[in-house]
Amino acid sequence: MGHDRVGRPICCIHPKEHIKGQFPHEYSEKMAILCVEIYRKLLQPPIESVTIIADMGGCEAKNFDLHQIKFVITLIDNYYPDSLGLIFILNCPWIFDKSWMLIKSWLSPSVQKKVRFIHSADELAEFIDLSVLPKRLYGTQPDFKFIPPTTEDEVMFNAFRADTKGKAIAEAAHWDAVQNYFNVTLQWANGNEDGNILSERKETRKQLRHAFEQRSPYISTRTHYHRVEVLKEPIFQVAYDRLVHNKEEPSITFF
Rank of each mutant, 00 (worst) to 15 (best):
H25L: 12
C11I: 11
V132D: 07
L90T: 06
I19Y: 07
T51P: 01
S110G: 04
C35R: 10
G85P: 00
K114D: 04
A172L: 11
L137G: 03
K247C: 05
N190M: 14
A172D: 09
R136P: 01
R8W: 02
E126C: 15
H14Y: 15
L102Q: 09
Y240L: 05
P9G: 04
K98S: 10
A61F: 09
A121T: 05
D65T: 00
I73W: 00
L231I: 07
L137S: 00
S131V: 08
D143E: 04
L231Y: 05
D163Q: 01
D241Y: 02
V111H: 01
L42W: 01
P148S: 11
I147S: 13
A159D: 13
K167T: 02
Y39S: 07
A177L: 06
G57M: 05
C12N: 09
C92W: 06
Y240D: 03
A32S: 15
G191R: 06
R205H: 08
M1G: 10
V184Q: 07
K206D: 13
M1H: 09
H224D: 06
I76A: 00
G195I: 08
R209G: 12
E48D: 14
Q187T: 13
E248Y: 04
W100R: 09
E48P: 04
S120C: 01
D122G: 11
Q44S: 11
F64Q: 04
H18R: 08
L66F: 12
H226Y: 03
G58P: 06
E249Q: 12
G58T: 05
Q179M: 07
G166M: 02
L186P: 06
R215K: 15
D163T: 01
K202P: 01
E126T: 12
T74S: 11
N91W: 03
V155L: 15
T204W: 08
D122F: 02
E213N: 15
R209L: 12
R161D: 13
K135T: 14
E60N: 06
D82R: 15
S28D: 14
D55Y: 00
A172M: 08
A61P: 01
D4V: 02
R5I: 11
S199T: 14
G191Q: 13
V244T: 15
C59K: 01
I76W: 00
P24A: 10
E229V: 07
F117N: 03
K165M: 14
I10R: 00
G2Y: 05
T150E: 00
N91R: 12
P45T: 03
R161T: 13
C12R: 12
H210R: 15
Q179R: 14
T185H: 09
E200V: 15
G85N: 02
I38P: 07
V230L: 12
C59S: 07
G58H: 05
K232M: 09
E17M: 15
Y80Q: 02
W175H: 14
D55S: 04
I118D: 10
A159R: 12
G57W: 04
S83L: 03
T51N: 01
